[in-house]
């Protein structure tokens, strides 16, 4: 047997093993979809259902009349629609500013960002509550949007920072020589050249704001202002046993994330956080 064909067999074996394991990652979602199509209020199945026999697509419209689902959905859309662009903007300018600072400041601020990244959220729950109260943001959707004004998450800022450091410094210098201000350098050079990172940050930011469960639990009390994740929790309390309805809600919540994730797949894997380290494949790509 030649080396090449043995290599090929190893690859196929690896692919088979990986497929079997990956199935375990996928199965819960498949099951959720299948069960969401069972008749509402029907007795739970006593064997595993692999295929919906009489799919009740009407479940997906029924949920809107059973709970104020449209309202939760709209609130979630509102938060994401405002927070995602703001996150992109503030993460980008903060990363840009950071990348333009003298070395001694960067050396101080970049690790500081990394530390902020690992402080668990529980650490600021209590006092953030008071801060929101002080500014009158408590029980408003702005409390959920607020983190967007600091770039959403220190990781997003670091992603932009690494991208802006990678752009050849001569480009900035040339623009500066021509009399451009730093603001213009960001608008005309920085922001167009960081488009890929921007797309990755938009995906991550959408997931962050759309999925946020903890913040609405902590800072929203008026059920009319509930977003989807907490709204669904309400369905659970109303009707514990209505599994199909709960799964319809879960599928509704997952779907937008899935669409965004799949359409941005390519950008995401290329611009993944750690992909920014100069790995071999990246170096090869850039030489071409």
């Amino acid at each position: 047997m030649t080396r090449g064909s043995r290599h090929q067999i190893g690859r196929i074996a690896r692919l088979l093993a990986a497929s079997v394991i990956a199935l375990a990652f996928f199965l819960p979602f498949y099951w959720a979809v299948v069960i969401s199509l069972r008749p509402l209020g029907s007795p739970p199945p006593s064997t595993i259902v692999w295929w919906p026999s009489e799919a009740q697509w009407s479940n997906y419209t029924a949920i809107f009349s059973i709970v104020p689902f449209a309202r939760y959905f709209l609130n979630s859309v509102r938060v994401a629609a405002v927070a995602v662009p703001l996150t992109w903007f503030f993460a980008s300018i903060t990363g840009f500013g950071l990348s333009r600072l003298p070395y001694r400041w960067r050396r101080l601020l970049v690790p500081l960002m990394a530390i902020m990244l690992v402080i668990p959220g529980v650490a600021f729950w209590i006092i953030r509550f008071r801060v929101f109260q002080f500014f009158g943001l408590l029980d408003t959707l702005w409390a959920l949007i607020a983190p967007a004004f600091m770039g959403g998450n220190p990781l997003f800022i670091l992603l932009f920072y690494w991208t802006f450091r990678r752009i050849p410094q001569d480009l900035y210098e040339a623009a500066r020589m021509d009399g451009a201000s730093w603001w213009q350098v960001w608008v005309y050079i920085g922001s167009p050249l960081s488009r890929a990172t921007g797309a990755a940050v938009v995906v991550l930011a959408f997931v962050k704001f759309w999925s946020d469960f903890t913040d609405p639990v902590l800072y929203i009390f008026d059920t009319g202002k509930y977003t989807l994740p907490v709204g669904l929790q309400l369905i659970r309390q109303l009707d514990q046993t209505n599994i199909p309805l709960l799964m319809v809600g879960a599928v509704f919540m997952i779907l937008p994330v899935l669409v965004v994730f799949i359409t941005m797949q390519r950008v995401f894997w290329r611009e993944r956080p750690t992909g920014l380290f100069p790995t071999r494949s990246r170096a090869r790509r850039e030489r071409i």
Binding site: V207, S211, V230, L246, M247, M253
Partner: peptide, 10 residues
């Protein structure tokens, strides 16, 4: 990547 609330419900 999917919302933690949906994941928990499943």
């Amino acid at each position: 990547v999917i919302p933690e609330a949906a994941y928990a419900l499943i």
